[in-house]
Nucleic acid binder design. Structure first.
Length: 636
RNA sequence: GCCGGCGUAGCUCAGCAGGCAGAGCAGCGGUUUCGUAAACCGCAGGUCGGAGGUUCAAGUCCUCCCGCCGGCUCCA
């Protein structure tokens, strides 16, 4: 007997029937069921024992099923309009679904509308979605007749004897399921985009056309989703960057993926860097600096030319010698370490550098500040003894969280990546390092997830993702062991025993890259930086032209007290206009001065939040801003 | 790199099927002297991303290049 939980919580016993039959008997509108946490088709037979849950369309778990069915409706519509398309795959994804097709003629973006309309018809027709099981030989024959070369390839990989298809009206598709019961359930959908996608993600193979869409059980769900997309668009750092005069990047003369930091963006970055430098000194790091280029032999020795050449800029030739722009800082730091011998007593050595590197990224993957070709890593290399490894990882984790929390993030996800199939170094070292990583996260009481075999070929690692204000995850911190470079550069220290030993080396970046980090911060804060990062902290706004001299005096006084303040008064500009400008520039503090304030030597404080705090002494306001900046809170 | 979309004034965009390059904002000049998200009037501003080509005529059509945007296994 299987115990089946109904959506209202009631549990009934059932056997020898399908989930669908039970649902119909119970008058339940089930679209899927969950057995052992696995989503499965409600058309399946109930298992003999175990606990099953029937899921309705409203259940969040059903969303995946709905999306997958929507992908079929999309394929159905495309097949009707373009009978010669070949179908590839059409899964549910995080925000919706897609389907990959091979079109005889690539469709144009205008075709999306037609396809959407046809999908609407199929939904209205409310075609029952049925499952058809075929013996493998028949399945092969069916796909062969239809000329479905991609589906045939998928079928070749399947081991089962019975192959499932799903059929709705005249449309049939090889599919694992599960699916909702009829096309009528796919009401609130929208096609989002058209894109190219290689078959199986392989650039060597055919370029297919991918159509993206999204679908929700309710109109409100769809509207809310579109609203969130709009909100993300409003916070897009590529839009806010130029608007807030932070940076520019689309300059044909300079080159793709190369960033110009304008004064305000440079100020934000400078504040971050100042903080970063101070904290690194406080945490026992030594700062070093290294050049932007190095001779070919350096990169030969490091192995970069052998394994990372794709990612490097072409060499420069100077006086018959080849130089490369650095894609990483590590070889330089190692060279500093190797410039003399080291005793076991002086480890750990921690070298840190805001090191600007250049990497060749394929033109199509560049994206604002988030993916660029020239960027500054907040890099460091920790060189230590085996007995120090665990404590180094622990303190680095604490340090990372401190840096991320200060920047305004409070939700983290930690991932531990272990040894991959192809690796260098001794397994014993891998084990020690991996265990040290594991014990360190446990000791810090951080929840973490293991990504088995996902480490780099040269060592295991821990990555930290943060969630921003819209709940999006960004990978920032990475802490990686390296068993490759210490060998290649023959790094050593003299142990207590008087012999030379190979040290452990850990690469780590906390923010990742300054460019990317600032991009993420812009989106996280929607451009409204906390006082310590705001490029302009306060603007003084005169009510009439009469108060311009006074407003300038106030700004000068604040500047003298260390506040980033500007006087914005201009002939002919009303207070309303000035406030609007300040709001658009997201300046945290607006200091209004009219005749009354000028008379009393005060200013009226208005916050970016719209709050009006009335007249105050200038010193009072300076103290307030300094306090907010010093504490690095987001509070104004 | 590849597929699709795009590039018109500093910014946002209009310019339909080739036929004299437009608007709003910003800028500049003036008027207004104004109390918490856009006062009013005027002026100036463009090798239509670049280079070729088709045409009597190209912002518009074709080719190449540059740059930007969405995407390129979240696997039936």
């Amino acid at each position: 007997m299987a115990a089946v939980e109904l959506p209202d919580g009631e549990v009934v016993e059932a056997q020898d029937m399908t989930g669908l039959e039970l649902a119909q008997a119970q008058g339940v509108d089930a679209v899927a069921m969950v057995a052992d946490g696995q989503l499965c088709d409600v058309r399946d037979r109930l298992p003999a024992t175990g606990r099953i849950r029937l899921v309705t369309a409203e259940d969040p778990l059903a969303l995946e099923v709905l999306r997958h069915s929507a992908a079929h409706v999309l394929a159905h519509a495309v097949r009707r309009l373009f009978p010669d398309v070949k179908l590839a795959i059409g899964p549910a994804i995080r925000d919706g679904f897609y389907y990959d097709f091979e079109f005889p003629e690539p469709p144009r973006s205008e075709d999306l509308e037609r396809i959407e309309q046809e999908m609407g018809k199929i939904v209205k027709e409310d075609l029952p979605i049925e499952r058809v099981e075929l013996p493998k030989a028949e399945a092969v024959e069916l796909l062969r007749r239809g000329g479905e070369v991609y589906k045939q390839e998928l079928l070749d990989d399947l081991q089962q004897r019975e192959i499932s298809f799903y059929k709705q009206g005249e449309f049939i598709d090889l599919c694992r399921g599960p699916h909702i019961l009829s096309t009528g359930g796919v009401r609130h959908f929208k096609l989002m985009d058209l894109a190219g996608a290689y078959w199986r993600g392989d650039a060597e193979r055919t370029m297919l056309t991918r159509i993206y869409g999204t679908v929700f059980p309710s109109r409100e769900g769809l509207k809310e989703h579109l609203r969130r997309l709009e909100e993300a668009r409003r916070r897009d750092h590529r839009v806010l960057g130029p608007q807030l005069e932070l940076f520019s990047i689309n300059n044909e003369d300079i080159g793709a993926g190369l960033v110009l930091w304008h004064p305000k963006g440079a100020r934000v970055r400078q504040e971050l860097e100042d903080f970063w430098v101070r904290e690194h000194y406080r945490h026992g790091y030594q700062l070093v600096r290294s050049p932007h280029i190095g001779r070919a032999r350096l990169w030969e020795r490091s192995g970069h030319l052998e394994f990372y050449r794709e990612g490097m800029y072409s060499p420069l030739n100077v006086e018959g010698q080849e130089f490369y722009l650095k894609p990483m800082n590590c070889p330089f730091h190692i060279d500093i370490y190797n410039s003399r011998t080291h005793s076991w007593r002086e480890l750990p050595v921690r070298y840190a550098e805001l090191g600007t590197v250049y990497r060749y990224e394929r033109s199509g993957v560049l994206h604002g500040l988030l993916r660029v070709r020239g960027f500054t890593q907040d890099d460091a290399h920790i060189i230590c003894r085996p007995d120090q490894v665990e404590e180094e990882i622990r303190s680095t984790l604490r340090f990372a969280l401190h840096m991320l929390r200060t920047a305004g993030f409070s939700e983290f996800a930690v991932y531990l990546s272990t040894r991959p199939a192809k690796f260098v170094g001794e397994p014993e070292r891998w084990d020690l390092a991996t265990e040290a990583l594991r014990r360190a996260v446990q000791a810090e009481e951080m929840r973490y997830e293991v990504k088995e075999g996902d480490g780099a070929f040269y060592g295991p690692k821990i990555d930290i993702d943060v969630a921003d204000s819209l709940g999006r995850a960004w990978q920032l911190t990475t802490i990686q062991f390296d068993f490759n470079l210490p060998e290649r550069f023959d790094m050593s220290y003299t142990g207590e025993d008087g012999h030379l030993h190979r040290p452990y080396m850990i690469h780590r970046a906390l923010y990742g890259a300054l460019e990317r980090f600032v991009g993420i911060l812009i989106e996280h804060y929607g451009g409204a930086f906390p006082p310590w990062l705001a490029p302009v902290q306060a603007v003084v706004l005169p009510v009439t032209e009469e108060q311009i001299p006074y407003s300038e005096a106030v700004a000068a006084q604040l500047t003298a007290e260390g506040v980033r303040a500007e006087a914005w008064g201009r002939a002919g500009k009303t207070l309303r206009w000035l406030i609007r400008q300040a709001q658009l520039q997201k300046v945290p503090y607006m200091l209004v001065v009219g005749p009354r304030e000028a008379e009393e030597g005060k200013v009226a404080l208005r916050l970016r939040t719209g709050e009006d705090l009335g007249p105050q002494e200038v010193e009072e306001i300076a103290a307030r801003i300094e306090q907010a900046a010093r504490s690095r809170t987001a509070e104004l």
